[in-house]
Amino acid sequence: MAYSLKKEVEKPERLVGGHRLCAGCGASIAVRGVLRALKPEDKAVITNATSCLEVSSFLYPFTAWQDSYIHSAFENAGATAGGAEAAYRVLKKKGKIDETFKFIAFGGDGGTYDIGLQSLSGAMERGHDMVYVCYDNEAYMNTGIQRSSSTPRFADATTTPVGTVIPGKPQNKKDLTAIIAAHNIPYAAQTTFISNFKDLHEKAEKAIYTEGPAFLNIMSPCPRGWRYDPENLAEICKAAVDTCVWPLYEIEYGVWKLNYEPKKKLPVEEFLKLQGRFKHMFKKGNEWMLEEAQNYVDQKWETLLARCK
């Protein structure tokens, strides 16, 4: 059925208000976007890696989740979702359950790119029927904006502060979506919040309703960590896509597909200039940073185009 935002927003919210995430947080937008793709009649078990999302969405005795929810630790959301799914399979086999349940794990980039990567990789390889969603805000925001392997080069983070000798994070961002795709799982994709959420919705729907393991990487801006006014979230997401810093693509059973190609690929500055974490890159004498950032984006974009041919 064709996507209709109007229809989709009529569905009951599965993440209610009253959670304690920051004003303008991308994480809850990602969660709402993904859960909207669930058929209302299907139940879900949500797993959460320790993260901003986790500590804000289930502060005893208040859960923001309408569905069953389990948090156990930082680095094990993959295994946790897999464990619940394994129990589901056996209880279903034994005739103890007849409802349909879907298994969705949410982790930040710290819990996904870094400390939870092993558990995620294991769960993907074992083939659990689950979706792992990374809401990628490019640093450890829960503990106070420390760099992760998802933090882009030159970003000012509290463990890669811009100093007189080192200009922010020295390393480039890890390409996690490609790493997960290399597990040869049925479905992997990356998306963010643009226009009417069609891209996110359709990817979430495919991820949830494709049998077997699926992975969604959702760029989810963090106003505090990226240093911008919360109201500008949509603008930043659009810039990320139009500069090809965060391309929208999916990999279905090993086939790469580009979902959006900007009519005019914007220079990377258009994304960087909106955020305080990259402010130093625009100082006189730092032109080389912008140049290197542009070169990196160009090279990654060309690689992606080649893969999607």
Binding site: K6, E8, V9, L21, A23, I29, R32, N196
Partner: peptide
């Protein structure tokens, strides 16, 4: 115009929808 664009962007589920 009830285009609904604002709704998915709300992080706090603060925009209710009723009967379209």
């Amino acid at each position: 115009t009830h285009c609904m664009l604002c709704i998915p962007y709300c992080p706090d589920s603060s925009i209710p929808v009723k009967d379209g």
